[in-house]
Design a protein around this nucleic acid. Structure first.
Length: 295
DNA sequence: AGCCAGGACAAGT
DNA sequence: ACTTGTCATGGC
């Protein structure tokens, strides 16, 4: 595969920025529109499209202009050390796409081909494990705009100020110390006790997220995360896919049930996708929401 | 106004 | 092992 390469560095809006060329089919819009990440929003820009937000405690923006990617709030070193992995620009998605569309029979192949086409350019972000776990605990029986609102409120109240109106995602320690009552006060609803339990287990060391990411066994990782109140198979799958590097995770939510009913009435054995199952799922999820928007 | 949202849990079959 | 009611809030 051909990885994007640094073209130049400079200053933009008073911040360091780095420009990369050869981003191929990477889509900033789709990657940050597909519901995997809740801390970025579109910003007004002279580029084709740009999102700004916070990840790994840094204020950053990603913009696309033709075949180039402009990262603002980052140097070339930052890209090499952090953002390349975060954006999965070190991964060959053409190869993954081929594996996905050929994993099923003819009918399934046709559907996956369309899903991969609609979703062309999506990357699975490699997010911080704790943030991913906490975010998808909040996501349950909730809608994306409100999930973003709650996460933003948690960050403003219990994160650290890292810029003008920008706050890092709160650590497990900070949320454990804040306590359930203050977390409930931010309109988290019945999820307040879930967030508190996760924060307490992680900050106390009862749950070691690094080990869960490194253990390599999906079943083991899933069962460990599910010791947290409010973490079931779906929340665990999302956390493991978006924050722990388990690309074989296949989260089944309400949208995926619609996909199954519409396209796979006989059932869909996601193990056929192997390690690409999570990406296949994301393509189907994105297609279903895309179709729903058109209707 | 009412249904639904990237569900999980407890209680009931 | 499945099915159902409940949970807190607000987006649409």
């Amino acid at each position: 595969m051909i990885k994007p390469t640094v073209i130049d560095e400079g200053i933009r809006n008073g911040k360091p920025c780095v420009r990369l060329g050869g981003i191929g089919n990477f889509s900033v819009f789709k990657t940050f529109d597909c519901g995997q990440c809740f801390r970025f929003d579109p910003v007004s820009t002279e580029l084709d499209f740009e999102v700004g937000g916070v990840a790994f405690g840094r204020e950053v923006s990603f913009g696309s202009l033709g075949d180039s990617l402009v990262i603002t709030g980052a140097t070339a070193d930052d890209y090499a050390n952090l953002w390349e992995k975060y954006l999965s620009l070190d991964t060959d998605y053409d190869e993954i796409d081929r594996a996905i569309v050929t994993a099923l029979d003819a009918d399934g192949c046709a559907i996956m081909t369309r899903a991969a086409d609609v979703s062309q350019g999506i990357r699975i972000l490699r997010q911080d494990p704790w943030e991913a776990l906490c975010s998808f605990i909040i996501s349950q029986n909730n809608n994306i705009p409100r999930i973003k609102k709650i996460i933003s409120a948690l960050s403003e109240n219990f994160g650290e100020k890292i810029g003008e109106g920008a706050y890092s995602f709160p650590t497990a320690e900070a949320l454990a110390e804040a306590g359930e009552e203050k977390i409930f006060a931010l309109k988290t609803g019945f999820r307040a006790s879930y967030i508190t339990d996760a924060a307490r287990k992680v900050s106390s060391g009862e749950l070691n997220l690094g080990k869960i990411a490194a253990c390599g066994s999906y079943a083991d990782a899933e069962s460990q995360l599910m010791t947290v109140r409010g973490v079931g198979p779906k929340v665990a799958a999302c956390a493991l896919l978006f924050g722990f590097g388990y690309t074989e995770a296949f989260p089944v939510d309400t949208w995926m049930k619609k996909v199954a009913a519409r396209h796979f009435p006989e059932g869909l054995d996601h193990s056929r996708f192997g390690k690409a199952a999570g990406i296949a799922q994301q393509y189907l999820f994105y297609m279903e929401r895309y179709i729903s928007d058109e209707a």
